[in-house]
Simulated scan of single mutants.
Amino acid sequence: MIIIACVDDDMGMMFNHRRQSQDRALRELVLEATKDNKLWMNHYSAKQFSESTAPQINVDDCFMSEAGSGEYCFVENCDVTPYLRWVEKIILYQWNRRYPSDQTFSINLSGGGWKLVHTKEFSGSSHERITEEIYIQ
């Protein structure tokens, strides 16, 4: 599976049971990147994509158990550590800010053999600068 997550500079994802931020341009980029494959997410994340009629979106609260090889998982409020052995690639979108957080991205990217293979910056609809980082093992 390919993990997609949005994080702040401290790898924070959630604060007080809510996503730290969201961005319309980033959602469009995710939908474009996943258009030829399945994009799995839970019901919480599906609310963020509710305006979309993208056929690749699959909603299931056990979505990481359902995702197959090469399929995408949009992760906001889940611990991916139990599924680490099935993770082929990680795509992080960095907000380039520090927000309060009480849930962080659980994979240590500086250890465990993860390699940063791609970085790209772009302007979002709510964030002047978002950084896409792609990691593989």
Rank of each mutant, 00 (worst) to 15 (best):
residue 109 L to E: 04
residue 123 S to L: 04
residue 17 H to F: 08
residue 126 S to R: 13
residue 104 T to Q: 04
residue 134 I to R: 14
residue 115 K to R: 14
residue 106 S to G: 14
residue 13 M to E: 11
residue 1 M to L: 14
residue 91 I to Q: 13
residue 54 A to F: 04
residue 23 D to M: 14
residue 21 S to K: 05
residue 82 P to L: 13
residue 111 G to M: 14
residue 7 V to D: 10
residue 17 H to M: 06
residue 121 E to I: 06
residue 10 D to S: 11
residue 45 S to L: 04
residue 35 K to I: 03
residue 41 M to T: 03
residue 31 L to A: 01
residue 114 W to V: 05
residue 29 L to E: 09
residue 9 D to W: 00
residue 67 A to V: 07
residue 95 W to V: 00
residue 21 S to W: 13
residue 127 H to W: 13
residue 59 V to H: 10
residue 36 D to P: 01
residue 100 P to D: 11
residue 102 D to W: 11
residue 6 C to K: 15
residue 49 F to R: 04
residue 70 G to F: 14
residue 10 D to G: 09
residue 71 E to L: 02
residue 71 E to C: 03
residue 48 Q to F: 15
residue 137 Q to A: 13
residue 19 R to H: 09
residue 69 S to C: 14
residue 82 P to I: 07
residue 82 P to S: 10
residue 58 N to P: 00
residue 64 M to T: 07
residue 92 L to Y: 03
residue 86 W to S: 13
residue 89 K to H: 07
residue 38 K to E: 00
residue 110 S to I: 00
residue 96 N to M: 07
residue 109 L to G: 06
residue 135 Y to F: 14
residue 109 L to A: 06
residue 109 L to C: 02
residue 97 R to H: 13
residue 112 G to P: 04
residue 72 Y to K: 07
residue 20 Q to M: 15
residue 64 M to P: 05
residue 100 P to H: 10
residue 57 I to W: 03
residue 134 I to P: 07
residue 57 I to G: 05
residue 57 I to T: 07
residue 77 N to Y: 05
residue 56 Q to M: 15
residue 70 G to R: 15
residue 64 M to G: 09
residue 26 L to A: 04
residue 101 S to R: 01
residue 31 L to G: 01
residue 98 R to E: 06
residue 111 G to A: 15
residue 28 E to K: 12
residue 91 I to N: 12
residue 122 F to D: 03
residue 46 A to S: 12
residue 93 Y to H: 11
residue 87 V to F: 02
residue 70 G to D: 13
residue 69 S to W: 06
residue 136 I to L: 10
residue 124 G to H: 10
residue 71 E to M: 03
residue 77 N to W: 01
residue 41 M to A: 04
residue 106 S to D: 14
residue 93 Y to C: 01
residue 39 L to D: 08
residue 79 D to S: 09
residue 49 F to G: 05
residue 68 G to Q: 08
residue 120 K to M: 03
residue 86 W to K: 13
residue 84 L to E: 15
residue 63 F to N: 01
residue 50 S to G: 03
residue 33 A to S: 08
residue 85 R to C: 10
